[in-house]
Design a protein around this nucleic acid. Structure first.
Lengths: 161, 161
DNA sequence: CGGCTGGCTCTACCGTCGCAGAGCCAGCGG
DNA sequence: CCGCTGGCTCTGCGACGGTAGAGCCAGCCG
């Protein structure tokens, strides 16, 4: 990965307002990531989230509320017969957009932290072929790290990053 | 995303030994991710890591040591004239494999937490076209989330996940 | 109305992470 | 041999995220 334009001299800038840092402040905790994982596995209800992630109700309540406030989850009321109205937690577009991050993390763990490739594999349903998370160009072809270049965003207001 | 085979009944299994969880135990802290970010930006030396990430020497030393022990960084001695031998921290294959995760996180932050697309953009150097992190099939084409399926890994030792 | 129930909150309490500041120590130059 | 310096470590200290356990409260039931 290369640094382009004014970024080339690494001593002249600091990665302030970094999106990685910002993202971590939202989903950088273990519980947030695991709640997202469960949501992708189809979980929608409070009790299931807490149980399947293996955290206390208090932790689940706090984190789900936080993620709902930010817009990762949407709270929607539902009602089962004979029960009072409750709420289910559904992924928003913002939440669903975390899938590449989550799968990239899983892929890395499978490859380097498990000795058997990990307990689960993710495949393309129509073909059964395993999927991979990749860095792709506009035509969909994989771009190798050496051919990546970081540039300042023109439309970004702050000049010093 | 669908659950295939024995995973279909979500009440019958728990995501134990999850690679996401394991990965988070290694790179799940803010400093670990930001040190990785700096490494991808070309930083190799202790002092630069601490300064550019904006953390104390103590935090940098501890985290770098931990990441080197795990195998994300490799410590290599170097010597500048008139200086004593020091060590630089280089990304290993394991470390470099974190790039998709890091870029996925940046991409998500750019899209949903910044109002101007974020301070930096990553492009393909040869063409200048912006890159994206995607979930891809074996032929390199993007696989939409609806067409993903999670299956148990046959070669995995533990049956109950 | 009154009881039950499940989501949610509150109150300790603990472990971890990061900071600040001081100090250690290897090793190169003089 | 001595002094300087830069990684690195140690010692509080505060913030935060998690647990455990108790309690609150809306609202559907009888």
């Amino acid at each position: 990965m290369k640094l382009g334009g004014p970024l080339a001299d690494r001593d002249e800038w600091r990665a302030t307002h970094c999106s990685v840092d910002l993202a971590l402040s939202v989903v950088g905790t273990r519980t947030a990531m695991l709640l997202l994982r469960e949501a992708f596995y189809g979980t929608t209800r409070f009790h299931d989230f807490a149980n399947r992630v293996g955290i206390t109700d208090a932790a689940a309540a706090g984190r789900l509320k936080e993620l709902a406030d930010i817009g990762v989850f949407e709270k929607r009321p539902y009602r089962e017969e004979g029960q009072r109205t409750r709420y289910e937690y559904l992924l928003t577009d913002m939440g669903r957009a975390m899938l590449p991050t989550l799968l990239a993390l899983m892929q890395w763990g499978d490859a380097y932290l498990q000795d058997d490739g990990g307990p689960l594999r993710v495949v393309e349903e129509s073909t059964g072929a395993p999927v991979r998370v990749q860095v792709c160009g506009p035509d969909g072809s994989e771009v190798p790290p050496e051919d990546l270049c970081v540039l300042p965003n023109r439309s970004s207001r702050s000049r010093t990053q």
